[in-house]
Design a binder for these strands. Sequence first.
DNA 1: CACACGCTGGACCAATCGGTCTAATCCTGT
DNA 2: ACAGGATTAGACCGATTGGTCCAGCGTGTG
Lengths: 182, 182
Amino acid sequence: MSDRPLPTKDRLILSAATLFRTRGYHGVGLADLLSDAKAPKGSLYHHFPNGKSDLAMAAATWASDEMLRLIAASFDGSDTFKDGATTLCFKLAKLFDITGWDTCPIAATLFEGPDNDSFRSHANHIYEGWIAEVYDHAARLGLSASEAQAKSEHLFMLIQGGWTLARARRSSDVIRQMTNRL
Amino acid sequence: MSDRPLPTKDRLILSAATLFRTRGYHGVGLADLLSDAKAPKGSLYHHFPNGKSDLAMAAATWASDEMLRLIAASFDGSDTFKDGATTLCFKLAKLFDITGWDTCPIAATLFEGPDNDSFRSHANHIYEGWIAEVYDHAARLGLSASEAQAKSEHLFMLIQGGWTLARARRSSDVIRQMTNRL
DNA sequence: CACACGCTGGACCAATCGGTCTAATCCTGT
DNA sequence: ACAGGATTAGACCGATTGGTCCAGCGTGTG
């Protein structure tokens, strides 16, 4: 991680997103974070006055934006909901193989934090954003409102649970196979 | 937690299971653990020579056994797979409301630990145990081998993902509603 | 009674934790 | 060239971390 030309703030966010999702919020110390991002402590507290927790929020938001892009990219080229959902699963399986057995970045980052409630509500906001994004594509592709809602939530749960199982097994196969159950 | 008559070792396991699942492995310090279990540090290292990590393993196993009992209780009185799966979901939703928005105890405890690989393989072993338990009931209720395998994995993923969404929303509704998608 | 052993209680430790603070440096607009 | 805000660098802090160690306790067996 942490290419040189990136500004310090972005390097911090990128390192945080990577480390938090592999070891969890409390599993990463500021020392790890700063050495990975090649940034001094002063910079952290300049860009994120509240320190670690601010950085965690930013990292989760960044990870969420990536996920939203992935969803859009999967559904944009598809003619049916099932097609879009299937390519999303395949893209995620590939991502799983590349990054290697991490957790959901949101859950790892926000479900442990100290100031539990603001973390939790931010996680909720992010998850609803994913579901809403899928919902919009579902509606666009002809599903009724109630069906679109049910299917987008269903897909969310499958991905979330499938990713967990894939991590335990160290194999992305389940993520690909679950497309049969859409 | 931690009734008086329970032996120290059990109190430690119980406290560990409770605390780890709400704040994660690294989010719980030995001090919290010991004060919750009303046990001195010496006892911890007497019963669990490797300290925190041994205790985490035991706590995960204990939580897994409870889950296995819950699965058995749900399917034993049911005549079809769908019935069993539905009552399992309802039991879990009720459990969610009682314990209150925790994570999956296995994921919270074992997916962050220091000695990552033995933790991960233990988590995998536990998850496969759950799926195998559901599989046995599915086969007993007449499903073919391949269908039983697919359905039990599917149920696992739904529960795992549904629980996460329920936690973010602070509502067990999704866990109940997902029975329509079995 | 005496010995042994499973267990408890807690003092103590080095390392690390997240966070504060200030001086130096960089960069930009004038 | 200069001023002045933005950014960096890192020494320093008290609190807490997981872990070690041993003296004593209680109980059951010889």
